[in-house]
Design a protein around this nucleic acid. Structure first.
Length: 866
RNA sequence: GGGCGCUUAGCUCAGCUGGUCAGAGCACCACGUUUACACCGUGGGGGUCGCUGGUUCGAGUCCAGCAGCGCCCACCA
């Protein structure tokens, strides 16, 4: 306690690291796997990439999760087991790229050192840097289960992934096929549709090429014409109907292309004739399959033209393009070229333009998995917040397409697939018997393993205590962008494998944009580093800011919200100092006789006792007689019930801001001020300590550090605040309407007098007569600087208090008063008009009309007071 | 092309089922060495709630249209 006397500020950087240590020592973040999911609380962290550093998204996501986990843990009695499942994702492409870059710096490459050595290097890299982000979560104050950290490439996790793959293969849902895929030249791999980003406003040249006297087609990729296998027209297009069924000779190559009719072709668009290139265009691929066309690949996975490109074979794509254009011009077949702006697919990962190619890949059929995943959201077993997101979820699942799950990478879950020669394929958990088998070199899409996250982390496929205690999890916190990529797939896999939903609630939160309204990104250089913010303002401030910024739609980063959090932490710290220093002083004075007894009465006892007490029905609340004491106890109950409701509604912004309002607007501005004239007797001390403890417990999930720090200084407290169980959310017996009315009137009166003083410039103590205010007269007098007596002359009525008429009456005061009078008169007129309106009086509900009458009376009184 | 959302004080945002809803924080101005806190206190100025119509006794709040912005999905050469 002595330590608080000269600490007028809460210094996060001095306090927070020490507190993190204390929390970790308590072991509360690591609950034993016991009990049932209904009794326990669990959240699976969206596993950050091993390559990652804590960014704003993690800070937001983590602050919310920790708030929920702490809230649940403190929701007792008894203190609930709350597990925040922690781990990292191996993040195939991202990690591989990172390590490859490192190799390049060393003057070598992935290909040079070979697959085995490369994978070894990735593991080394992970051992060295992989723990970084975990440490950063600790710094944020996140109480994840650090004793049970998982990685999507752990041996057990790999086993789970392999099992899922093999079973889905055996059920016929996983298959291998030649299909047009999104080839990412950057990573040299196929990628899924969800990893493709459609960039609008890409400038390109559209070439119009003459295929025959009557047929001119258009393309932005002339080099792909080498793989054309047809020309399509609309079946009802009279311009071309006589050509359907004939052939046309493909320029430069000489292949005969059939002219086919397909409804896909838009007669109005361009020439109405469409070149069909099944090997390099998704639409053409579909058309090709409908008409049984040959699928020719003119571009290979190595980015070079294939033998099918004839004399252009071996050229790079850009070179081929230039030569094709040149050749067409030489032959006089280039009709025209046109600059256009259109939409082009790019790899989300590498940023390179997608090269659609036909490739032999592994796919997963999704319909039968999607169906139950739709059902659980439809019937409300999984609730998505906000509700509007469930429609997006359902729409996507209803239109789901096969998922390309194989990736041509080295870092990841290698497929449990083996080939012998061209014909034999083996899929199984153990390598096949016999010679000559070769394992498929491909790995799985990272999201395949992520889809198993909520149960594979708990030990599935084994029937572990952890799985029984914590699956299904309670809630998943995520950003909108991975609703399909991850959330939907977890639901599908959860229902298919453990056979239950992976979580009951999905809360889809905002993305925090840069202050300039754009996305935070490295390349734009507009990012804000949460770790820097933590260093500068403290983790509490950042957490408060994150919660205050959280929303279901995107918000801009707001430095003010973080500063607001810092101010709150400091304010609470100082309010606690005020309470504790006063209590200590009073205690010292009273020590002679009441010392021991007093301590026992006010203290909550050690942590363990406290918990026991909580189980038995909580420490008895004080029942003070002073009206402001009853008032703050009552307001505290309201703050608690508001907080409880906001947690249940996932309204974290209001939770944080409501806490701020309670601490500033009620506890500090009024309660502590109101008590300043009072002696710290036993009753006041007990009430204050009670309110302080309750407030700390209430605020702890939002601002855990400062509350923990203060907690340690409260007499009688032992153990961490982290380990405490809150009382029942609301103690109805403490709600005191009468006290709220009385103090409410007091507040109004003090404000009215203060405002009057400001208007008139009168600062002296004034003689006044109070009408009412029996229980609060002393406080009113002190806070409004009034002394009670008979006001001389013609007394003014200010906020229900009659005060002596002011002696000053300067021109300025008169002017301000004139303005005020005009305003009041205008409002009175409006209210009168409203009440004169018969329709209003007849149709509006009674309380509204009454309210209007009251308002009018109020305004008239105010006018009289002037 | 389809879908969703946004437009309220200088800034960032609250405003649920239409009637104390015109608010908060920051910024700004004035005043203030009061038994914690200047990361403080007290008070104040400031918005015809994007625009235009409509429904209603009454509309930031409901409906329609328009303008601007953002996001997601989508195969238009």
């Amino acid at each position: 306690m002595a330590g608080l006397a000269d600490r007028t500020r809460f210094e996060p950087s001095e306090v927070e690291p020490r507190i993190v240590e204390a929390w970790l020592e308590s072991g509360l973040h690591h609950p034993e796997p016991d009990g049932t999911p209904a009794e326990n609380f669990s959240i699976a962290i969206p596993p950050p990439n091993v390559t990652g550093a804590l960014h704003m998204g993690h800070a937001l996501n983590g602050s919310i999760q920790d708030c929920l986990v702490r809230w649940a843990r403190m929701s007792g009695p008894p203190t609930r087991r709350a597990k925040w499942i922690l781990g990292t994702d191996h993040a195939g492409i991202a990690t591989q790229t990172q390590v490859e870059r490192m190799l390049v710096k060393e003057g070598t490459s992935r290909e040079e050192i070979g697959r085995e050595a490369f994978v070894e290097r990735v593991w080394q890299w992970r051992a060295e840097y992989g723990g970084q982000i975990i440490e950063q979560y600790k710094r944020l104050g996140a109480t994840c289960d650090y004793e049970d950290e998982r990685f999507t490439m752990d041996a057990e996790y790999i086993a789970a992934v392999q099992k899922v793959f093999v079973e889905l293969y055996e059920q016929g849902l996983i298959y291998r096929d030649h299909y047009l895929v999104n080839w990412d030249p950057g990573s040299g791999s196929a990628i899924s549709d969800l990893e493709v980003e459609q960039r609008e406003d890409v400038r390109d040249t559209l070439f119009h090429i003459r295929y025959s006297d009557e047929l001119v087609v258009a393309t932005v990729r002339p080099e792909t014409m080498l793989a054309d296998t047809a020309v399509a027209v609309h079946p009802d297009d009279e311009r071309y109907s006589h050509l359907i069924g004939t052939t046309v000779s493909l320029p430069l190559i000489g292949r005969e292309l059939p002219v086919i009719a397909d409804l896909y072709v838009d007669r109005e668009f361009g020439t109405g004739a469409l070149k069909i290139t099944p090997g390099h265009d998704p639409n053409d691929f579909e058309i090709g399959r409908r008409h049984g066309l040959e699928e020719i690949s003119a571009i290979g996975e190595d980015g070079l033209m294939t033998a099918a490109a004839g004399r252009f074979a071996g050229l790079t794509v850009p070179a081929a393009r230039a030569e094709v254009i040149e050749a067409l011009e030489a032959d006089g077949l280039m009709v025209s070229r046109e600059e256009i702006v259109h939409t082009v697919p790019y790899s989300h990962r590498s940023g390179q333009r997608i090269e659609p190619l036909i490739s032999l890949q592994w796919f997963m059929r999704m319909e039968s998995l999607a169906e139950p995943a739709i059902a659980v959201v439809r019937d409300g077993r999984i609730k998505i917040h906000p509700e509007s997101q469930s429609r997006r979820y359902i729409d996507w699942l209803e239109n789901i397409r096969p998922w390309c799950i194989s990736r041509q990478l080295w870092w990841g879950h290698q497929l449990p697939v083996y080939y012998r020669g061209e014909q034999e394929t083996y899929v199984g958990l153990t390598p096949p018997e016999g010679d000559g088998w070769e394992r498929d070199p491909d790995v799985l899409d990272t999201w395949f393993s992520s889809a198993l996250w909520p149960f594979a982390t708990l030990g599935w496929p084994h029937d572990t205590p952890a799985l029984r205690a914590f699956y299904p999890t309670d809630v998943l916190l995520t950003a909108r962008e991975i609703l399909f990529l991850w959330v939907a797939r977890m639901v599908m896999m959860g229902l298919r494998f453990p056979g239950d939903i992976p979580f009951e609630h999905v809360y889809v939160h905002s993305v925090i944009q840069a202050p300039d309204g754009r996305r935070m990104s490295k390349s734009l250089g507009n990012g804000i580093d949460p770790l820097e913010e933590i260093e500068r303002h403290g983790a509490d401030a950042v957490r408060f800011g994150m919660l205050a910024m959280s929303s279901t739609q995107d918000v801009r980063f707001s430095a003010e919200k973080i500063r607001q959090g810092q101010a709150l932490a400091n304010k609470l710290f100082n309010a606690a100092r005020f309470v504790l220093l006063n209590v200590a002083e009073a205690e010292a004075e009273a020590e002679a006789e009441a010392g021991a007894e007093f301590k026992a009465g006010a203290g909550a006892g050690a942590g363990a006792e406290f918990r026991a007490g909580a189980e038995a029905g909580a420490e008895p609340a004080p029942r003070p007689s002073a009206v402001e004491d009853r008032w703050i106890l009552s307001r505290l109950q309201r703050a608690k019930s508001d907080a409880q409701r906001r947690i249940e509604e996932f309204d974290f912004a209001k939770l944080a801001l409501g806490l701020y309002d309670f601490v500033y607007g009620e506890l500090c501005d009024w309660y502590l001020e109101l008590t300043k004239g009072r002696e710290f007797d036993e009753e006041l001390s007990a009430t204050m300590l009670f309110v302080l403890r309750e407030t700390l417990a209430l605020a702890h999930p939002v601002i855990p550090f400062v509350t923990e720090e203060v907690w340690g200084h409260v007499p009688g407290n032992a153990g961490t605040l982290l380990a405490q169980s809150r009382r029942e959310p609301v103690d109805g017996a403490l709600v005191d309407e009468a006290a709220e009315r009385e103090v409410g009137a007091l507040i109004d009166a003090v404000r009215a007098v203060r405002a009057w003083r400001e208007r008139t410039g009168v600062r002296d103590v004034l003689t006044a007569r109070a009408n009412g205010f029996e229980g609060t007269r002393d406080a009113l007098g002190r806070m409004a600087k009034l002394e009670w007596g008979e006001p001389g002359g013609e007394p003014l009525n200010v906020g229900g208090v009659e005060i002596a008429a002011p002696v000053v009456d300067s021109a300025e005061v008169e002017r301000k008063r004139g303005e005020q009078r005009a305003r009041l008169e205008a409002e009175i007129e409006r209210a009168q008009a409203k009440l004169a309106n018969e329709a209003f009086v007849a149709k509006a509900p009674e309380p509204v009309v009454q309210g209007e009458r009251g308002k009018l009376a109020d305004l008239r009184r105010q006018l009289d007071e002037l």
